[in-house]
Measured scan of single mutants.
Amino acid sequence: KTEWPELVGKSVEEAKKVILQDKPEAQIIVLPVGTIVTMEYRIDRVRLFVDKLDNIAQVPRVG
């Protein structure tokens, strides 16, 4: 699995749990929505963009 659209609106902790069940090797990085990030693709990275309430604001994707 490479993306988790069902996690939008969920808490960071809930999202981490689901992603690590699907992809145990994932390196999860939590960032505020709108953060500028590098464009290199990494198969072991999932970025979680969160709103001010620490809920997932964008679809988490591998990369």
Rank of each mutant, 00 (worst) to 15 (best):
K17D: 05
A26S: 09
Q27W: 05
R61P: 00
L48D: 01
V62A: 12
R42A: 15
Q21Y: 06
K17P: 05
K17I: 07
K52D: 09
D44C: 07
A57K: 07
E13F: 08
I43Y: 11
T35V: 07
R61D: 03
V12F: 04
E6P: 02
I36T: 15
V30C: 06
R47E: 15
E6F: 06
V50A: 06
K16I: 05
K52A: 14
A26I: 14
Q58K: 13
K23Y: 15
D44P: 11
K23H: 11
Q21P: 00
I19Q: 01
K17S: 09
L48K: 02
K17R: 12
P24H: 03
I43P: 15
I28S: 02
I36D: 15
K52R: 12
E40G: 08
T38R: 11
K16M: 07
E40V: 05
K23A: 12
S11V: 03
V46I: 11
I36F: 11
R61I: 09
R45I: 14
F49L: 08
D22L: 03
A26V: 13
P5M: 02
V59Y: 02
V46A: 05
T2C: 07
I29M: 14
R61M: 13
L53V: 11
E6L: 04
K16R: 09
A15P: 00
G63L: 09
L48W: 01
S11D: 07
I56Y: 00
K52W: 06
I19F: 00
V59N: 01
E25F: 08
A26M: 12
G63F: 08
E14N: 06
V8T: 03
Y41M: 12
E25S: 12
Q27T: 11
K16Y: 05
G63I: 08
I28C: 11
K10D: 04
I28M: 08
K23D: 06
V33P: 08
F49R: 02
G9W: 00
L53E: 13
I36Q: 13
Q21C: 11
T38V: 06
N55W: 02
V37P: 14
I56L: 05
Q58W: 06
K17W: 07
N55S: 08
K10Y: 08
V50I: 08
